[in-house]
């Protein structure tokens, strides 16, 4: 029953909220899409929080996505024990780096009074969810090792069954508690995402890499506007 709720209903609920609210927010309150950086208020501790956190979390996130999208290639790569070991060790190391970053972020937000004034309840919810997510992830890596391989035979098929709208809970029902917690928290994170500053992830400035250097915006068609003679 609770499995149905957590692994059959929650994912759809979370994704539904995610899509509806991010789109509605982007269309009606674009102004609120901002990374809300507080670097300006405190410039030194910021480095030791933001930088390790972002690099760590992005790397780990990328590994997870690879596990979902190209499980066969991951399995093939992991077939050699040394390579499996390398995958696991880097994943764990990057998760630890992300954790260090998050701890520094939270400490800074608590200790630096200027940073504290711009920290909202929604920020604390984000930190809590991310904290649980990273800690459980590290726990899974340590206590239920070789996840980069068993992932492909349990969570990946379950994920695709969700996508096909035919959730097959049998894939996940036998997973250990820590893994379940990690997964459920991930859906919570996705559900809360659109209400928080996390939306800045959706507006990363990729077009900067190829757009023209200078931006000029005209209020008229340069070749047709003429003054009245």
């Amino acid at each position: 029953m609770s499995d149905t709720l957590l692994f059959g209903v929650l994912p759809y609920l979370a994704v539904g909220i995610f899509l509806i609210v991010t789109i509605q927010r982007y269309r009606q309150r674009t102004f609120t899409y901002s990374s809300l950086s507080s670097q300006f208020l405190e410039n030194k501790k910021h480095f030791w929080g933001s930088v390790p956190f972002h690099y760590g979390i992005l790397f780990v996130l990328f590994l997870h996505l690879a596990g979902l999208v190209i499980p066969d290639m991951i399995l093939a790569w992991n077939a050699v024990p040394l390579r499996l070991f390398v995958t696991e060790a880097t994943g764990l190391a990057m998760a630890l780096i992300a954790l260090v970053g998050l701890v520094n972020i939270v400490l800074r937000r608590m200790q630096v009074s200027k940073a504290r004034t711009v920290t909202t309840p929604s920020d604390w919810i984000v930190y809590a969810l991310l904290g649980v997510q990273i800690v459980t992830g590290i726990g899974v890596a340590i206590f239920h090792g070789w996840g980069s391989s068993w992932f492909a035979t349990s969570l990946t098929p379950w994920f695709w069954s969700l996508v096909r709208l035919e959730p097959e809970l049998s894939y996940v029902s036998a997973l250990p508690f820590l893994v379940k917690l990690h997964v459920v928290n991930a859906w919570l994170l996705i559900g809360f995402f659109p209400f928080t500053r996390l939306v800045h992830v959706l507006v990363v400035p990729n077009q900067y890499l190829w757009r023209r250097t200078q931006v000029v915006i005209w209020n008229h068609d340069r070749h047709t506007t003429r003054s009245v003679d």
């Binding site: 000029v216 915006i217 005209w218 209020n219």
Partner: peptide
């Protein structure tokens, strides 16, 4: 972001 721009006119 391309949020900054120079007004053409």
């Amino acid at each position: 972001s391309g949020a900054m721009y120079k007004r053409g006119e």
